[in-house]
Design a binder for these strands. Structure first.
Lengths: 251, 251
DNA sequence: CGGCATCCGTGACGATACTG
DNA sequence: CAGTATCGTCACGGATGCCG
């Protein structure tokens, strides 16, 4: 157990870094924004992290109210880690970081690991940026693999005015339930849910399906290209009959 | 010095953390967003950082294009560190982190250090959030000290040809930068200056002056209170005759 | 005196091995 | 599968010293 090394500064940014400034922590959050994950899955998608550091970070995140550990009901009974509402509120931080770091994707080093869903957050930002493209489930196909996005599924999360009493968050047994209650969205109460994206194909028929290559994806992430531009240039293939798909094709 | 430990992931957030994920780096950026600072000033406002780590981070930041080191002409010849344009683009990251960490300011530990200008970024966000309050130089008085904000001074970093902002920056720079005329000319105009805030009183007559207490300031930072609400509740004293001051008083 | 560089003790980190 | 144990290494924090 870490005695919690702190900057000891009465500054909100320093306080944030006390909680998420340790190595690997924000990348674990990036993974968990895609929904519940098992320890082994996290370890597989975070190449380079050692097993003890991963276990230690997950414990710290539990202690700090960022994540919870839950046992899945059989069959397939296993432990999964899942973000709390407080943890999911880190999405704007990861979006800002990703936006800032996007130019560095120009260089792709041979030592770089790649996962398809690492493009999920940048692409989500690109889809949002284009005004209100609408809401819905978007399935994305890349060379590296597939993932899906819940566009417009996190309305209040980006709005920081929504954060309040986190003092009792530590004591609360079910943080996510409390958050979901006040969020009003009230999906499954007691379920941590509402991931921002997911790995693999969409769990149901998506409202739209996009197929694009990695280069187009990084161009979108870097803001060099907008989604409608890429569609018009034929660099994104949009399929689907929903209003969302039509809006994406129309630009 | 450092062989640059990297996550080796083809992911924009991971790339960002390669550059700014090390301990102290983002807090150094927070300090430098207030304009050029000397080594000793940084060391004084980052209590807990060791001298070698600070020097090492500053070197890394230079190498990575986040900051530059510049020699001031005599008298008072000293080195100052200053953010590059790329470095200043980290402002959204610090705002997002500060927004997320604001609830933690509820607890003020006796070991916490405090500096008045640590409230500058949260307050800037609060002033911005209220639609377009306008632009201008705002002086702020707190119990802990004073600082000033350049509201609306960071519209678009890519727009380096904005003459008005450049003039404001000239005025904004400390005694130190005033002597930098000849050296700074050829540098990309927008690259160096344009701090987001500054320590101490405003360098010229501010467009508005706000006096408030720390509790009000943290409430603003946490989003529990809006600027107009606080003004109406008498928790902020707004003085000044400019349009900005009048707009702030009006709500 | 400001601006680091050096040295040193401690803790964090990364790789591997091992266990319920 | 989900971690714990062990160990070598490196980064960090504190102090001190050097040098202009």
């Amino acid at each position: 157990m870490s005695p919690r090394r702190s900057y000891d500064q009465y500054c909100s940014a320093a306080r944030a870094l006390d909680a998420v400034g340790d190595r690997w922590t924000l990348l674990i959050v990036r993974e968990l924004l895609g929904g519940p994950r098992r320890y082994t899955d996290l370890h597989a998608d975070l190449p380079g992290v050692s097993t003890d550091v991963l276990a230690s970070r997950l414990k710290d995140m539990e202690r700090d109210g960022l994540a919870t550990r839950r046992r899945l009901p059989p069959p397939g009974a296993a432990y999964v880690y899942e973000l709390t509402g407080r943890g999911r509120e880190l999405l704007p931080v990861l979006l800002a970081l990703g936006s800032w770091g996007a130019p560095e994707l120009a260089e792709r080093r041979p030592t770089d690991a790649v996962r398809a869903h690492w493009f999920a957050l940048p692409l989500l930002r690109a889809l949002r940026e284009r005004g209100e493209t609408g809401e819905g489930l978007v399935e994305v196909g890349l060379e590296e693999g597939e993932f899906h996005l819940y566009v417009g599924a996190d309305e209040d999360v980006t709005d920081a005015t929504d954060v309040r009493d986190v003092r009792d968050v530590r004591d609360a047994e079910d943080v996510t339930a409390a958050k979901d209650r006040e969020a009003g969205g009230a999906r499954e109460a007691g379920q941590g849910g509402r991931p921002v994206y997911g790995e693999g194909r969409a769990p149901r028929e998506p409202d739209a399906r996009l197929v694009l290559d990695t280069g187009t994806c990084t161009a979108l992430a870097r803001g060099e290209l907008t989604v409608p531009d890429a569609v018009r240039a034929g660099r994104i293939d949009v399929s689907g009959d929903s209003a969302l798909a039509k809006a994406l094709r129309a630009g």
